[in-house]
Design a protein around this nucleic acid. Sequence first.
DNA 1: GCAAAAGTGTTTTCAATACACCCATGG
DNA 2: CCATGGGTGTATTGAAAACACTTTTGC
Lengths: 223, 223
Amino acid sequence: MDIFTKEYINYLESLITIFTVDKGIVKVLLIRKQTDPYKGYWSLPGDGLKNNETLENNITDALLDQTGLLNVYIEQCYTFSALNRNSEERVIATSFMGIVDSVSAVIKRQDRPNIISEWFPINDIPKMAYDHEAVIKKNIEFLKRKIVNINTLKAFFPSDFTLPEIQKVYEQILGKTFDRRNFRKKFVGLNLIEDTNEKNIGFNGRPAKLYKFKENIKQIDLF
Amino acid sequence: MDIFTKEYINYLESLITIFTVDKGIVKVLLIRKQTDPYKGYWSLPGDGLKNNETLENNITDALLDQTGLLNVYIEQCYTFSALNRNSEERVIATSFMGIVDSVSAVIKRQDRPNIISEWFPINDIPKMAYDHEAVIKKNIEFLKRKIVNINTLKAFFPSDFTLPEIQKVYEQILGKTFDRRNFRKKFVGLNLIEDTNEKNIGFNGRPAKLYKFKENIKQIDLF
DNA sequence: GCAAAAGTGTTTTCAATACACCCATGG
DNA sequence: CCATGGGTGTATTGAAAACACTTTTGC
């Protein structure tokens, strides 16, 4: 190949939309820009790609460095190559979608006072830097296709969960509502979960049963 | 950003798996490598990405230049960034999936005797250069998810088609068989196609009816 | 005891499946 | 007239949808 010349030099970055569910609300993790351009706007975690690392390593490292999140379930979504997507020089971005459970979501690094991060509900995204709003949208679309997969869902709920919780996650991501009885009937019928015989006390109303996913469930699509 | 330094310099290429259906067989377009490395092996069409073009423009141009194919339905699939995927220097590849109908598929450029291209059935792929076999696999998986979409299917059959033809395409890509009567019932029931009142003569057996897609059909998923 | 949210069962409806015979063409 | 492949209709099955009342907790 003769592509190792000046006009073929490109710069890449990885970006990630991390999802979690916080008290029943599906949220994404954003970082506040403290320098121009787009000072005060919000942005996705991510980093420039060095030529000795893979995109997957890069985004995993960036995530740990910027948010302290470890062992995050990630999937590659899309590569954005519009010439004007970055305001300065031309940078290509590969976006990822990530999921953390609500417990891991709170363990964020506090030793970086210059990194301000915050969880935002997916239908209440603040003003975003660069093309990051379009990136989030694309990644939400990706999640929409993936959430029907049992492993993707499991990333939200690695340990105990209630059926109403899971139903709410589906309803927010898929943008439609389900009948509680039919949802339960279908979900339990799939034989993927088991009752922990514990209850989700401390909330209004009758406490919901706590379930957990069985070990070694096979990869299937629900819905 | 401070990423515009030597260690952040990356080289990219686009690759595309073009699908078509030829006498009922789903095939992909490959190009024979005539120089080392991998001389005699087959490879996907594609090209290095200059820093003043988008991936989509790049792959469209490369396709026209290398195969003469124009107005191809394309969708981005995946970006491969393994350090050793290209045998020489490190090159990142973004793969696309493309579809052409059987009529357009034969119009290939003959003025490039040094480019040898050939259509191969998807279950009879020859020995591939670099990681292109893995790329094809990933792109076939992508097509598998996309073929249920009416617009993707339409790219295979922009004009007349028969129901047995479409059924065979589904069967090959999804890897399962359908009952002829049930397939027809469902497909016709979707109200997406209209009878052209012509027949597919010249083949063995009773000639199949020719249909065409209606104008302005809304984007839906079948199956 | 009242509000809030969760658990439970039955009926209906519609789509998916299974299945067998006849029809139109080429040779 | 025979081989080949395409077109058609019906009965069955199963999953999705619709729907109302009771139960458990917090306050």
